[in-house]
């Protein structure tokens, strides 16, 4: 077969390199695609709007509705509000190796959340609800950091995530 790149390139070595570059790019994209589909790994992308100025009046994000709830299938839903300069409720406790769905809304500006050494990360954007689906394999005390600049007090915006070993969770 005639090399389709012959018209733009006279050199054999260089054509070989074009092929290698393309194969590399497609292999990496393909591998990520495979994982995305096969293991259902996606970034937080739920596209759900909310009026951030009225969170306290909503069914889901009113003060007394926040925190950890167990679903019928044993998984957990954690409902939280991010507001300058803290996460509410400030301490979250979940068992290890259990599917956890965080649902977080901002009451004011842009925030972010990152739990170091885990893949729990999302931007928290006013007007939208952020959803993180994950589970924590290792028990321990984690920091729950705001990782997006939200104002002059941004540094002090962090709270606690405690992952307790699965078995000690009273069921």
């Amino acid at each position: 077969m005639r090399d389709p790149f012959r018209s733009i390139c006279d050199d054999d070595l260089e054509r070989r390199w074009i092929w290698i570059s393309l194969i590399l790019a497609f292999a990496m994209g393909g591998l990520l695609g495979l994982y995305a589909v096969a293991s259902n790994i996606h970034p937080p992308s739920n596209v759900e709007t909310i009026d951030s100025s009225r969170l306290h009046l909503t069914e889901e994000f009113a003060e007394d509705k926040l925190g950890v709830k167990q679903n019928d299938d044993g998984s957990l839903t954690v409902t939280m509000v991010a507001a300058r300069y803290g996460f509410f409720p400030p301490v979250i406790e979940v068992p290890s190796n259990t599917p956890v769905k965080f649902r977080i809304a901002s009451a004011d500006v842009l925030h972010g959340v990152h739990v170091p050494f885990t893949n729990a990360t999302a931007m928290i954007v006013p007007g939208y609800i952020s959803e993180i689906n994950t589970s924590f394999p290792t028990a321990g005390k984690y920091s729950f950091l705001c990782n997006e600049y939200c104002g002059l007090g941004h540094d002090s915006m962090w709270s606690r995530l405690i992952v307790v070993p699965e078995s000690t969770q009273g069921k």
Binding site: I20, S21, G29, P43, P44, S45, M123, Y128
Partner: peptide
């Protein structure tokens, strides 16, 4: 915007494939 909530995963995936393509000119 991978970590932003307001776009669906499919759009992010589409932009990701383009992102890998843009590595090609740098390799060349």
């Amino acid at each position: 915007l991978y970590m932003d909530p307001f776009h669906a995963a499919g759009w992010k995936f589409l932009h990701m494939t383009g992102t890998f393509m843009v590595a090609v000119p740098t390799l060349l």
